[in-house]
Nucleic acid binder design. Structure first.
Lengths: 338, 338
DNA sequence: GGTCTATATGGTCACGTGGCCATTACGTCT
DNA sequence: AGACGTAATGGCCACGTGACCATATAGACC
């Protein structure tokens, strides 16, 4: 494995001169530069980021922790962030918390062990690892939350305008004539410190609708739980005429349940969901969705992190919101017996 | 950022003793060990993998390059591999080549720069980067290909039994009575050095069917190209009675095209596809698929790589095949005018 | 009592780099 | 001519660790 010393020897210059060809080429004479570059080329030399990271006290490495990479939202984030990081010369260490506090902690240890310069994290609920994150920041890692943030979080974040989107969704359903609207999973301070379910009652209130107690359930926002809840809701004496799914994963469960019950969308029940996952356009009928600008959010996150890292402004707290976009495809219509 | 020196100082022992508490605790007296551990705990010390990697000459880092992380096959791989790596104390650097040779090369540079100990790679077609990979191996990185491998590749790989799956798929369609079967994308030595499209003519031959020239097209295996090709195929005077999609991404395009033409599945055309993506069970009708054991493949890949890395057997070449599984859901039926 | 062995602990150095300071050559200004 | 400035190059060392070698203590053995 050739080092800069080998390059220097081959080019017939001192090590210091050789490495200037990489970092400060303007300091070298044309001819010297060419000679060193030739040696680099011939040897296939590539700077050792491990050694550089040690010496610099700062690695060219970012960390990303997602909740579940199988969700297209997170897959897209990984793709965008990995690409942006790599184009700036940073490598991206990706971890998946599976929304599990213990897994998250284990992953954080590995990330800290590798001394990532920055960490973009979609943390799980609750705050068992907040202290660990704070210590990481004290020790030089810039922390940025994405898609969710701890209550009273001291870190910056990149978020969807969840409240605005919920309001828009509810307004849309209300304008179609719906009066019995249900979300899949209700706000619970213990289980869902989550903006979407928390905004829903406010949104109902804003259009003058009551929150229907019979629809309130505390569930995990997963496919199987959404499936079960949808079955339950649609079997009520007064089932909802519209279901508002809080994410694309839930929507799959709701869709499956509705089909299984032999109900038609939108004739028997309207379905609106967060996340423009590709399958939502393929099913019958294609679903109305609220799309997140995932790529913009990922790029913004990288910008914020690298800006802070490279300018040594680790205390800088940036909080950014992105608007969603309602796409109508036909899964929402006026209720039958409006 | 506390180092092992700080730990030693706090515990009142020599640095060497302190680090033995981590790597060789059996050498220490009970009481000394307890004292050092207490100091580690109190300081929140975590070994610096950057420094360790430099000294050791080998990092606790693996690299993974996928073709497109938005494809659930790859997302699942990332998840499985990241998890397995992290449980062994390795961090995983994830990159996405977008099936682009230049992007792939840039990513390889970053991975090499970070001196990953092992690399699991789903390379793009063609071999412009094969030499670079060979040099990486010479310099200590263990390379394992997954899902695809270079012709004459000197590396090991983890693969689906593509030929067996194509044969099974064709046998299945043939047994239903189909005589006009088309794949989406035909084998072309330049564009598709790819096992599935290459096996298809052989599989037809095995059941005594001719390869229909009118269906042969060289396309990229993407959603838009599959969409366009499906439109073309179904508008032929003698359209196929069954379409065999070579991956889940293509299937989405084919499905979209079939729906758009107002054709019914399976009455007007049967559809069979590789990859059990979750949307395939949600559409109407749910699709017949050939499922890959993605998690097993990912775990096997990590085993192979870490085994070679930790036992310094970088020249060991392991080649492993996994069987697929045909799942019938109703998108394939006998053709109308058999 | 001296030698041996096992147990427990300590000391030293290099991995490849980047930051910093030092040196040389040569032209310009007063 | 001497002082000075600039361009170009060189030398040295520490980052935190792990490998390797060295030392100290105490009990066992003859």
């Amino acid at each position: 494995m050739p080092s800069i010393l080998d390059v220097a020897k081959r080019a017939g210059v001192a090590p210091t001169t050789a490495k200037r060809a990489i970092h400060e080429p303007h300091l070298l004479a044309q001819e010297t530069l060419a000679r060193v570059r030739k040696a680099i080329e011939e040897l296939g030399y590539e700077p050792d980021q491990v050694a550089g990271g040690l010496r610099r006290g700062r690695t060219q490495t970012l960390g990303l922790m997602v909740g579940n990479i199988m969700e297209p939202f997170f897959a897209s984030l990984v793709r965008t962030i990995a690409h942006a990081a790599q184009s700036r010369g940073y490598a991206l260490i990706v971890t998946d918390s599976e929304y599990d506090t213990k897994v998250e902690r284990a992953n954080l240890r590995v990330l800290y062990g590798h001394r990532v310069s920055g960490l973009i994290i979609r943390s799980g609920y609750g705050q068992p690892n907040l202290d660990y994150l704070k210590r990481m920041r004290e020790r030089g890692t810039y922390i940025l939350e994405i898609d969710y943030f701890y209550p009273d979080s001291p870190f910056g974040h990149v978020m969807l305008d969840n409240e605005g989107c919920v309001f828009e969704g509810v307004r849309y359903l209300h304008s179609l004539g719906h009066r019995r609207i249900a979300t899949l999973g209700s706000y619970d301070p213990l289980y869902h410190p989550e903006e979407r379910s928390r905004s829903f009652p406010k949104a109902l209130e804003a259009v003058g609708l009551p929150l229907i107690e019979a629809y309130q359930r505390v569930i995990l926002l997963t496919e199987p739980e959404a499936y079960k809840l949808t079955l339950e809701l649609m079997r009520l004496p007064e089932p909802p005429t519209a279901i508002f799914s809080l994410n694309g994963t839930e929507a799959a469960g709701a869709f499956r349940a509705i089909k299984e019950l032999g109900l038609r969308i939108p004739e028997d029940v309207s379905l609106l969901t967060f996340d423009n996952y590709s399958w939502t356009a393929l099913v019958t009928p294609p679903l109305d969705v609220i799309e997140q600008p995932v790529e913009e959010m990922g790029l913004a996150a990288v910008e914020i992190v690298l800006d802070a890292v490279e300018n040594r402004t680790l205390d800088k707290v940036v909080r950014k919101r992105f608007p969603g976009r309602l796409i109508k495809r036909g899964s929402c219509a006026p209720p039958k017996h409006a």
